[in-house]
Every structure is written in C-alpha cells, then in structure tokens.
Amino acid sequence: MFDSVGWGEILVLVVAGLFILGPERLPSAAAWLGKTVRQVREYATGAQTKLRNELGPEFDELRKPLEDLRGLRNFNPRTAVRRTLFDDDPDPLGMNTLRSNGNGSTGASDTAPAAPPAARPVERLAPDERPPIDPDAT
C-alpha cells in the first residue's frame, strides 16, 4: 500500500496532523485511520475470495489480462520502438561522433576534430556503359 509513499512523506503527514489536530486528538485520529484501512482491506480480500469461489478456474483467466495491463503501466513508446528497431545498438545512427557544436568535434578545445569515416570507392562507368538495374528496387 505504501509503495509510492516514502518515510519522508509519512513524517510530513504526521507533523501536519500534529499541527492541525493537536496532540490531544492525533492518537484517536490515527487509531480511526488504522481501523478504517484494516476494514477496507478486509472488504477487498473478502470480495476477491468471493469472486474466486464463484468463478472458479475462470478467475485466473480474468486475472491474466489485468496483470498484462498492469505491466503496461510503465510502458514507454520511445523505448519500445528503439528496442524493436535497433536491437540494442547504443548508437544506431552514429550520432555520438557528431555531438554538441555540429562541426564534427567533440566540443573539447584541445583535441582535433574526429576524422570522417572512410568513404566507399566510387565505381566509374564507361562512357557507353549502362548502370546496373536492381529489379527489386524498382
């Protein structure tokens, strides 16, 4: 229940309750809150047990899609697309070599700019030669 609430938040709530309710009424308010939370938990557990008994094995079939939806709570579409397209390549587009100021250097003033990658040799065609055609590309 307190997965997203840390000890710092609980301490702030206790101090705020001390100022709002005063030291006389704070213990009774905390007891009431504890009793209410316990009662809500018992209702939820009883409802789950009743559903499980009435539905039988179909209850597990209903829980599976709900568990899958719970797994989507932290879904990030950018991460999913990046993971799907680039298969764990840390720099798929080679952007780490062209950082910060855009001129190919890493931004440090005492280092030389990075050398450009080696270019593929260009194949020259003879004056009467036709370029090759890729039937899959057309």
Rank of each mutant, 00 (worst) to 15 (best):
D3M: 12
S4G: 04
V5Q: 03
E9R: 11
I10S: 04
I10F: 07
L11F: 08
L13E: 10
V14Q: 07
V15D: 08
L18W: 09
L21N: 03
L21D: 00
L21M: 04
P23K: 04
P23L: 08
P23G: 11
R25F: 03
L26W: 00
L26N: 01
A29C: 00
A29L: 00
A31G: 09
G34V: 10
T36E: 12
T36G: 02
R38W: 06
Q39P: 00
R41F: 14
E42V: 07
E42G: 02
Q48P: 00
Q48D: 11
K50I: 12
K50C: 10
K50V: 09
L51I: 05
R52M: 11
N53Q: 10
G56T: 04
G56M: 04
P57T: 10
E58H: 08
E61W: 08
K64V: 13
D68N: 13
R73D: 13
F75V: 05
F75K: 01
R78F: 08
R78L: 09
T79D: 07
T79K: 10
T79C: 06
T79M: 12
V81H: 09
R83M: 08
D87K: 15
D89N: 13
D91E: 01
P92N: 05
M95L: 15
T97A: 15
G102C: 06
G102Q: 05
G104A: 01
G104P: 02
S105D: 14
T106S: 15
T106M: 15
A114E: 13
P116D: 08
A118M: 10
A119C: 03
A119Q: 15
V122E: 03
L125K: 10
E129C: 02
P131C: 01
P132E: 15
I133Q: 14
D136W: 07
T138R: 13
T138G: 05
